[in-house]
Nucleic acid binder design. Structure first.
Length: 202
DNA sequence: GAGTAGATCCTCT
DNA sequence: GAGGATCTACTCA
């Protein structure tokens, strides 16, 4: 298993990166507790030209400042006061592209994830949906800006990848307010995987 | 099984 | 002061 290099994140095509992230492994390691999962669902946010993005129209605030940094760091923020959403910042400085990690297939540290989420046994809701992903992995807003090549949090590949016909593109979720951009097929997921979020899972 | 409403708090205007 | 890159439970058919 090898960490993805900075060159993976700093490519200009956020759509391609979102697709390439499917099948990769997201790992967190705090206080000696390792938990990891294979990424099976992502969404691309294409910076200033994307109405659904926090950086739409070149908006720049304290919260989304991280999106303008060089690719290869985490952007974490709280939504609806409840859910922590974990994003991967891509592209280079001043280009606020990001990929939202929406769902994982649990691999290591499942017991730790169950403990964090207050569940007793493994079920499909453990890492289904962006709010649950960060909860299961123990990711909070204070981790925003962390390097994805660091010791505590990183993304790695183990040689596994999905073939093109296993990957489905669809409109994003929860962005109806973004007008026509809400219909862009910027969400990518693995066909038939029970951990894919949203309903229905076609 | 499908659709809808409520929770809940940080961030920006 | 208002709204949001969501989730869950509850209702109704």
């Amino acid at each position: 298993m090898k960490k993805l290099p900075l060159s993976f994140y700093q490519r200009p095509d956020v759509i391609q990166i979102a697709k390439d992230l499917l099948g990769k492994i997201l790992v967190t390691k705090w206080k000696g507790q390792i938990s990891s999962g294979r990424i099976i669902e992502t969404e691309a946010y294409a910076g200033a030209t994307d109405n659904a993005s926090h950086a739409s129209g070149g908006r720049r605030t304290q919260r989304n400042e991280i999106m303008y940094a060089d690719g290869g760091v985490a952007y974490v923020y709280l939504c609806y006061g409840i859910h922590h959403l974990f994003n991967v910042v891509t592209n280079i400085k001043e280009n606020p592209h990001a990929v939202l990690i929406r769902a994982l297939e649990p691999m290591k540290g499942i017991e730790t994830m169950l403990e964090r989420t207050g569940k007793e046994k493994l079920d499909f809701t453990l890492t289904k949906g962006p709010g649950n992903v960060s909860k299961a992995l123990g990711i909070f807003t204070k981790h925003s800006g962390s390097s994805l090549l660091g010791k505590e949090i990183f993304i790695a590949g183990d040689g596994f990848s999905y073939s093109a016909n296993e990957i489905i593109a669809s409109p994003r979720i929860g962005v109806e307010y973004a007008g026509k951009d809400a219909k862009l097929p910027f969400r990518f997921y693995v066909k038939g995987n029970p951990f894919v979020s949203g309903r229905p899972n076609k």
